[in-house]
Amino acid sequence: MIHYPAANLTNINLTGGDLTEVVANNTNFTNTNLTNTILSKGNFTTADLSGVKMTDAIAVNANFTNANLTNADLSKVNFTDATFIGANFTASNVDATDFVF
């Protein structure tokens, strides 16, 4: 399990990474590239994911409670059984995204 609580991971390229079960609450991911990244069972509570590119990522059972996802590219992400209580999706692209609960 990877722990990044309250870390600053802005403008990083994590394309194709495996962040399964990551603990990233309060982490700043602004403008980070998470394309094809596995984020399943991760904890992104109150994380700043504004401007991220998360195309084709897998985030099954991930927790995005109160996360900031403004201006994010979330196209084709698998968010099956993910939690989004209080999350902000303002101006985000969710084309072909799977939100099965």
Rank of each mutant, 00 (worst) to 15 (best):
M1K: 12
M1P: 11
M1A: 14
I2G: 10
H3L: 15
Y4I: 11
Y4P: 01
Y4Q: 07
P5L: 06
A6M: 10
A6Q: 14
N8T: 12
N8C: 09
L9V: 08
N11H: 14
I12C: 13
I12H: 13
I12D: 04
N13H: 12
N13S: 13
L14H: 06
G16D: 05
G17Q: 13
G17H: 11
D18A: 01
D18G: 02
L19A: 01
L19C: 01
T20K: 07
T20A: 01
E21P: 00
E21L: 10
V22P: 00
V22M: 02
V22C: 02
V22E: 00
V23M: 12
A24E: 01
A24S: 11
A24C: 09
N25D: 15
N26F: 15
T27W: 00
N28D: 14
N28W: 07
N28P: 03
N28V: 11
F29Q: 05
F29Y: 07
F29A: 07
T30P: 04
N31C: 06
N33M: 05
N33K: 12
N33R: 10
T35L: 06
I38A: 09
I38L: 11
K41M: 09
G42V: 03
G42K: 00
G42F: 02
N43I: 11
F44H: 03
F44W: 07
F44Q: 01
T46I: 08
T46Q: 14
A47M: 06
D48R: 09
L49P: 07
L49V: 07
L49M: 15
S50K: 12
S50F: 03
G51M: 04
V52I: 15
M54S: 15
M54K: 04
M54V: 09
T55Q: 10
T55M: 08
A57V: 03
A57M: 00
V60Y: 06
N61I: 01
N63R: 07
N63D: 15
F64K: 10
T65E: 15
N66R: 11
N68V: 13
N68F: 08
L69A: 06
L69S: 05
T70S: 14
N71Y: 14
N71D: 15
N71R: 12
N71I: 07
L74K: 05
L74P: 02
S75W: 03
V77S: 02
F79I: 09
T80L: 10
A82R: 07
T83D: 12
F84S: 13
F84T: 11
I85R: 10
I85F: 09
G86C: 08
N88E: 12
T90F: 09
T90G: 06
A91P: 01
S92L: 03
N93E: 11
V94G: 03
A96G: 05
T97Y: 00
T97W: 01
T97D: 00
D98F: 10
D98T: 15
F99K: 08
V100C: 10
F101Y: 14
F101R: 13
